[in-house]
Protein backbone atom coordinates (compact mmCIF):
# COMPACT_ATOMS: atom_id res chain seq x y z
CA UNK A 1 0.00 0.00 0.00
CA UNK A 2 1.25 3.46 -0.87
CA UNK A 3 2.38 5.58 2.04
CA UNK A 4 0.12 8.47 2.98
CA UNK A 5 1.87 11.52 1.54
CA UNK A 6 -0.52 14.47 1.28
CA UNK A 7 1.99 16.93 -0.19
CA UNK A 8 2.86 14.59 -3.02
CA UNK A 9 -0.82 13.96 -3.74
CA UNK A 10 -1.50 17.71 -3.68
CA UNK A 11 1.32 18.39 -6.16
CA UNK A 12 -0.02 15.74 -8.54
CA UNK A 13 -3.35 17.55 -8.94
CA UNK A 14 -3.31 20.18 -11.73
CA UNK A 15 -3.93 23.28 -9.64
CA UNK A 16 -1.68 21.97 -6.87
CA UNK A 17 1.13 21.39 -9.37
CA UNK A 18 0.89 24.80 -11.03
CA UNK A 19 0.59 26.69 -7.75
CA UNK A 20 3.44 24.69 -6.22
CA UNK A 21 5.65 25.59 -9.20
CA UNK A 22 4.87 29.30 -8.82
CA UNK A 23 5.48 29.14 -5.06
CA UNK A 24 8.80 27.37 -5.60
CA UNK A 25 9.77 30.15 -8.03
CA UNK A 26 8.89 32.84 -5.46
CA UNK A 27 10.81 30.95 -2.78
CA UNK A 28 13.80 30.57 -5.09
CA UNK A 29 13.71 34.35 -5.67
CA UNK A 30 13.72 34.95 -1.95
CA UNK A 31 16.52 32.45 -1.26
CA UNK A 32 18.82 33.24 -4.17
CA UNK A 33 17.96 36.93 -4.65
CA UNK A 34 21.61 38.09 -5.00
CA UNK A 35 22.22 35.48 -7.74
CA UNK A 36 18.99 36.07 -9.68
CA UNK A 37 18.54 39.84 -9.44
CA UNK A 38 20.22 41.67 -12.35
CA UNK A 39 21.03 44.74 -10.20
CA UNK A 40 21.49 45.56 -6.55
CA UNK A 41 18.23 46.63 -4.93
CA UNK A 42 19.60 49.87 -3.47
CA UNK A 43 21.74 51.36 -6.29
CA UNK A 44 20.18 54.66 -7.25
CA UNK A 45 20.43 56.18 -10.73
CA UNK A 46 18.55 59.44 -10.60
CA UNK A 47 18.94 60.37 -14.30
CA UNK A 48 17.32 57.04 -15.18
CA UNK A 49 14.37 57.36 -12.78
CA UNK A 50 10.85 56.31 -13.73
CA UNK A 51 12.19 54.61 -16.88
CA UNK A 52 9.83 52.49 -18.99
CA UNK A 53 10.27 48.72 -18.99
CA UNK A 54 13.09 47.96 -21.43
CA UNK A 55 15.64 45.30 -22.28
CA UNK A 56 18.00 46.66 -19.61
CA UNK A 57 15.24 47.04 -16.98
CA UNK A 58 12.50 44.47 -17.71
CA UNK A 59 10.09 46.05 -15.29
CA UNK A 60 11.41 49.61 -15.57
CA UNK A 61 12.90 51.67 -12.75
CA UNK A 62 11.39 53.46 -9.77
CA UNK A 63 11.52 57.10 -8.75
CA UNK A 64 15.17 56.78 -7.68
CA UNK A 65 16.14 54.91 -10.85
CA UNK A 66 16.47 51.58 -9.02
CA UNK A 67 15.77 48.44 -11.08
CA UNK A 68 12.21 47.41 -10.24
CA UNK A 69 12.63 43.71 -11.03
CA UNK A 70 15.61 43.43 -8.69
CA UNK A 71 13.64 45.14 -5.94
CA UNK A 72 10.68 42.79 -6.46
CA UNK A 73 13.00 39.76 -6.27
CA UNK A 74 14.55 41.07 -3.05
CA UNK A 75 11.10 42.07 -1.84
CA UNK A 76 10.04 38.41 -1.94
CA UNK A 77 12.48 37.90 0.94
CA UNK A 78 10.75 40.43 3.15
CA UNK A 79 7.23 39.31 2.27
CA UNK A 80 7.83 35.58 2.62
CA UNK A 81 10.04 35.78 5.72
CA UNK A 82 7.62 38.01 7.56
CA UNK A 83 4.47 36.12 6.54
CA UNK A 84 5.83 32.60 7.03
CA UNK A 85 7.57 33.35 10.34
CA UNK A 86 4.58 35.23 11.73
CA UNK A 87 2.08 32.54 10.74
CA UNK A 88 4.32 29.71 12.02
CA UNK A 89 4.58 31.39 15.41
CA UNK A 90 0.85 32.00 15.37
CA UNK A 91 -0.01 28.39 14.43
CA UNK A 92 2.25 26.86 17.09
CA UNK A 93 0.96 29.21 19.77
CA UNK A 94 -2.65 28.73 18.64
CA UNK A 95 -2.32 24.92 18.69
CA UNK A 96 -0.85 24.98 22.19
CA UNK A 97 -3.36 27.43 23.63
CA UNK A 98 -6.36 25.90 21.88
CA UNK A 99 -5.45 22.33 22.82
CA UNK A 100 -4.82 23.21 26.47
CA UNK A 101 -8.01 25.26 26.72
CA UNK A 102 -10.16 22.52 25.22
CA UNK A 103 -8.49 19.63 27.04
CA UNK A 104 -8.24 21.03 30.54
CA UNK A 105 -11.27 23.35 30.43
CA UNK A 106 -12.16 25.28 33.58
CA UNK A 107 -10.93 28.80 34.26
CA UNK A 108 -8.06 28.51 31.81
CA UNK A 109 -10.48 27.73 28.99
CA UNK A 110 -12.75 30.60 29.99
CA UNK A 111 -9.83 33.05 30.11
CA UNK A 112 -8.44 31.95 26.73
CA UNK A 113 -11.88 32.00 25.11
CA UNK A 114 -12.65 35.48 26.47
CA UNK A 115 -9.39 36.98 25.17
CA UNK A 116 -9.64 35.18 21.85
CA UNK A 117 -13.25 36.26 21.30
CA UNK A 118 -12.29 39.83 22.12
CA UNK A 119 -9.46 39.96 19.58
CA UNK A 120 -11.58 37.97 17.08
CA UNK A 121 -14.11 40.81 16.99
CA UNK A 122 -11.54 43.24 15.54
CA UNK A 123 -10.17 43.01 11.99
CA UNK A 124 -6.59 41.71 11.86
CA UNK A 125 -5.32 44.97 10.35
CA UNK A 126 -6.66 46.97 13.29
CA UNK A 127 -5.00 44.68 15.84
CA UNK A 128 -1.74 44.83 13.89
CA UNK A 129 -1.90 48.64 13.68
CA UNK A 130 -2.57 49.00 17.41
CA UNK A 131 0.30 46.65 18.26
CA UNK A 132 2.73 48.44 15.94
CA UNK A 133 1.63 51.78 17.40
CA UNK A 134 2.71 50.37 20.76
CA UNK A 135 5.97 48.62 19.85
CA UNK A 136 7.07 50.82 16.95
CA UNK A 137 7.56 50.09 13.24
CA UNK A 138 10.05 47.62 11.74
CA UNK A 139 10.22 44.09 10.31
CA UNK A 140 10.31 42.46 13.76
CA UNK A 141 7.32 44.44 14.98
CA UNK A 142 5.34 43.50 11.87
CA UNK A 143 6.06 39.80 12.49
CA UNK A 144 4.94 40.04 16.11
CA UNK A 145 1.88 42.07 15.16
CA UNK A 146 0.81 39.64 12.42
CA UNK A 147 1.32 36.57 14.58
CA UNK A 148 -0.80 38.05 17.38
CA UNK A 149 -3.42 39.29 14.92
CA UNK A 150 -3.96 35.74 13.60
CA UNK A 151 -3.59 33.96 16.94
CA UNK A 152 -7.33 34.06 17.70
CA UNK A 153 -8.18 32.22 14.48
CA UNK A 154 -5.86 29.26 15.13
CA UNK A 155 -6.70 29.06 18.82
CA UNK A 156 -10.42 28.93 18.11
CA UNK A 157 -10.02 26.38 15.36
CA UNK A 158 -7.80 24.11 17.47
CA UNK A 159 -10.07 24.43 20.47
CA UNK A 160 -13.14 23.46 18.46
CA UNK A 161 -11.32 20.46 16.96
CA UNK A 162 -10.03 19.18 20.30
CA UNK A 163 -13.42 19.69 21.95
CA UNK A 164 -14.96 17.36 19.40
CA UNK A 165 -12.10 14.84 19.48
CA UNK A 166 -11.67 14.52 23.22
CA UNK A 167 -15.00 12.71 23.52
CA UNK A 168 -14.05 10.07 20.96
CA UNK A 169 -14.01 6.53 22.28
CA UNK A 170 -10.36 6.01 21.39
CA UNK A 171 -9.38 8.75 23.84
CA UNK A 172 -11.21 6.90 26.60
CA UNK A 173 -9.67 3.62 25.44
CA UNK A 174 -6.19 5.13 25.60
CA UNK A 175 -6.88 6.55 29.06
CA UNK A 176 -7.92 3.09 30.13
CA UNK A 177 -4.61 1.71 28.87
CA UNK A 178 -2.98 3.98 31.44
CA UNK A 179 -1.98 6.89 29.19
CA UNK A 180 -1.37 10.35 30.63
CA UNK A 181 -2.49 13.73 29.31
CA UNK A 182 0.72 14.22 27.36
CA UNK A 183 0.32 11.00 25.39
CA UNK A 184 -3.34 11.69 24.65
CA UNK A 185 -2.76 15.28 23.53
CA UNK A 186 0.35 14.65 21.42
CA UNK A 187 -0.35 11.16 20.06
CA UNK A 188 -4.09 11.33 19.47
CA UNK A 189 -5.69 14.76 19.74
CA UNK A 190 -3.20 17.04 18.01
CA UNK A 191 -2.44 14.70 15.05
CA UNK A 192 -6.17 14.46 14.37
CA UNK A 193 -6.74 18.19 14.85
CA UNK A 194 -3.72 19.27 12.83
CA UNK A 195 -5.09 19.01 9.27
CA UNK A 196 -7.54 21.90 9.29
CA UNK A 197 -5.20 24.07 11.33
CA UNK A 198 -2.32 23.54 8.89
CA UNK A 199 -4.59 24.36 5.96
CA UNK A 200 -5.92 27.44 7.74
CA UNK A 201 -2.30 28.42 8.41
CA UNK A 202 -1.44 27.95 4.76
CA UNK A 203 -4.36 30.12 3.66
CA UNK A 204 -3.60 32.71 6.35
CA UNK A 205 -0.06 33.00 4.98
CA UNK A 206 -1.58 34.50 1.83
CA UNK A 207 -3.54 36.97 3.94
CA UNK A 208 -0.45 37.70 5.99
CA UNK A 209 1.47 38.66 2.83
CA UNK A 210 -1.29 41.16 2.06
CA UNK A 211 -1.29 42.38 5.67
CA UNK A 212 2.49 42.80 5.54
CA UNK A 213 2.13 44.71 2.25
CA UNK A 214 -0.58 46.90 3.76
CA UNK A 215 1.56 47.72 6.77
CA UNK A 216 4.47 48.32 4.39
CA UNK A 217 2.20 50.59 2.33
CA UNK A 218 1.62 52.65 5.48
CA UNK A 219 5.38 52.75 6.02
CA UNK A 220 5.17 50.65 9.21
CA UNK A 221 7.06 47.59 7.98
CA UNK A 222 10.52 47.23 6.46
CA UNK A 223 12.26 50.59 6.48
CA UNK A 224 13.94 52.02 3.33
CA UNK A 225 15.99 51.04 1.47
CA UNK A 226 14.99 47.43 2.27
CA UNK A 227 12.44 46.58 -0.43
CA UNK A 228 8.99 45.31 0.50
CA UNK A 229 6.17 44.86 -1.99
CA UNK A 230 3.73 46.94 0.02
CA UNK A 231 6.15 49.83 0.53
CA UNK A 232 7.04 49.74 -3.19
CA UNK A 233 3.38 50.10 -4.12
CA UNK A 234 3.04 52.92 -1.64
CA UNK A 235 5.89 54.90 -3.23
CA UNK A 236 4.41 54.06 -6.65
CA UNK A 237 1.17 55.92 -5.90
CA UNK A 238 2.87 59.26 -6.47
CA UNK A 239 4.04 58.15 -9.93
CA UNK A 240 0.89 56.28 -10.90
CA UNK A 241 0.21 58.47 -13.97
CA UNK A 242 3.80 58.84 -15.21
CA UNK A 243 5.19 55.40 -14.28
CA UNK A 244 2.31 52.99 -13.50
CA UNK A 245 4.64 49.95 -13.62
CA UNK A 246 6.06 50.97 -10.24
CA UNK A 247 2.75 50.10 -8.64
CA UNK A 248 1.60 47.40 -11.08
CA UNK A 249 4.52 44.93 -10.84
CA UNK A 250 4.72 44.69 -7.00
CA UNK A 251 0.93 44.40 -7.00
CA UNK A 252 1.15 41.54 -9.49
CA UNK A 253 3.81 39.86 -7.36
CA UNK A 254 1.51 40.00 -4.33
CA UNK A 255 -1.52 38.80 -6.28
CA UNK A 256 0.25 35.88 -7.95
CA UNK A 257 1.87 34.72 -4.69
CA UNK A 258 -1.36 34.94 -2.69
CA UNK A 259 -3.43 33.22 -5.40
CA UNK A 260 -0.86 30.41 -5.61
CA UNK A 261 -0.87 29.95 -1.86
CA UNK A 262 -4.66 29.74 -1.84
CA UNK A 263 -4.75 27.26 -4.71
CA UNK A 264 -2.11 25.08 -3.09
CA UNK A 265 -4.03 25.29 0.19
CA UNK A 266 -7.15 24.06 -1.60
CA UNK A 267 -5.28 21.15 -3.18
CA UNK A 268 -3.83 20.31 0.23
CA UNK A 269 -7.26 20.27 1.89
CA UNK A 270 -8.36 17.59 -0.53
CA UNK A 271 -5.23 15.46 -0.30
CA UNK A 272 -5.01 15.69 3.50
CA UNK A 273 -8.35 13.97 3.90
CA UNK A 274 -7.22 10.49 4.88
CA UNK A 275 -10.57 9.05 3.82
CA UNK A 276 -10.12 10.34 0.27
CA UNK A 277 -6.71 8.78 0.13
CA UNK A 278 -7.77 5.39 1.41
CA UNK A 279 -10.80 5.11 -0.81
CA UNK A 280 -8.51 5.28 -3.82
CA UNK A 281 -6.24 2.48 -2.59
Amino acid sequence: MAAFDPIKTAIRSPRGGVSAAVLLLVMACALFAPLIAPYAYDIQNLPGSNADPSVAHWMGTDEFGRDLMSRIIYGARTSLTVAVTAISISVVAGLTLGAMAAYFGGWFDRAVTAVVDLTWSFPEILIALILIAIIGPGVGSVMVAISIAYLAQFTRLTRAQIMALKNETYVEATTNLGAGHFHIIFRHLLPNALTPVIVAGMLATGDAIILEATLGFFGLGAQPPTPSWGAMMSSGTAQIFIAPWIIIFPGLAIAITVISINLFGDALIESLDIHNHLRSV
Partner: peptide, 19 residues
Protein backbone atom coordinates in the same frame (compact mmCIF):
# COMPACT_ATOMS: atom_id res chain seq x y z
CA UNK B 1 -3.53 -1.49 37.86
CA UNK B 2 -4.97 -0.67 34.45
CA UNK B 3 -2.94 -3.52 33.03
CA UNK B 4 -5.35 -5.84 34.82
CA UNK B 5 -8.63 -4.10 34.03
CA UNK B 6 -9.55 -3.35 30.47
CA UNK B 7 -12.63 -2.40 28.54
CA UNK B 8 -14.25 -3.28 25.23
CA UNK B 9 -16.29 -0.37 23.95
CA UNK B 10 -19.74 -0.16 22.48
CA UNK B 11 -18.77 1.69 19.32
CA UNK B 12 -15.95 -0.09 17.48
CA UNK B 13 -16.10 2.60 14.77
CA UNK B 14 -14.59 5.27 17.00
CA UNK B 15 -12.67 3.03 19.39
CA UNK B 16 -9.51 3.09 17.26
CA UNK B 17 -7.74 6.29 16.27
CA UNK B 18 -8.41 6.71 12.52
CA UNK B 19 -4.75 7.62 11.94
Amino acid sequence: LRRQMQMVFQDPYSAIDPR
